[in-house]
């Protein structure tokens, strides 16, 4: 996944069972964003791998004032890349459980 300047990581161990999982997002390189992020804290949130889309969360982050609306795509892509990796890993490690 290309480096968007926004990092998204698991905020808990993933055992492949739960559909909702804790993620942590922070801006690693503010220069890559169009708008100025509100602060450079790490934002932790829960994401439902089955019911929600990265765009939902990105829009909520913008509504909550964390990011400028012009950065919706970058934030959504950063979350999407991490979610894809989590699902890919689950498929490989716990194929029968998926």
């Amino acid at each position: 996944a290309e480096d968007t300047g926004v990092r998204v990581e698991l905020a808990e161990e993933d055992h492949g069972r739960k559909s909702s999982i804790a993620l942590r997002l922070w801006v690693e390189d503010p220069k890559k964003l169009k708008g100025k992020p509100k602060d450079n804290g790490a934002i932790e949130f829960t994401f439902d791998l089955e019911k929600e889309t990265p765009d939902d969360v990105a829009q909520e982050m913008i509504d909550s004032g964390f990011f400028h609306e012009n950065d919706l795509k970058i934030v959504a892509k950063s979350i999407r890349d991490r979610v894809a990796l989590i699902l890919w890993r689950r498929e490989r490690i716990w194929p029968r459980m998926q």
């Binding site: 390189d29 804290g41 790490a42």
Partner: peptide, 27 residues
């Protein structure tokens, strides 16, 4: 504590905490 919590109208909670210095790229 240095944690702040923001709850979005759709109900999702965002918990903001400082990023460890080691995880921030050189500015």
């Amino acid at each position: 504590s240095s944690f702040t919590q923001v709850v979005h109208s759709a109900g999702r909670r965002f918990i903001v905490s400082p990023v460890p210095e080691s995880r921030l790229k050189e500015q």
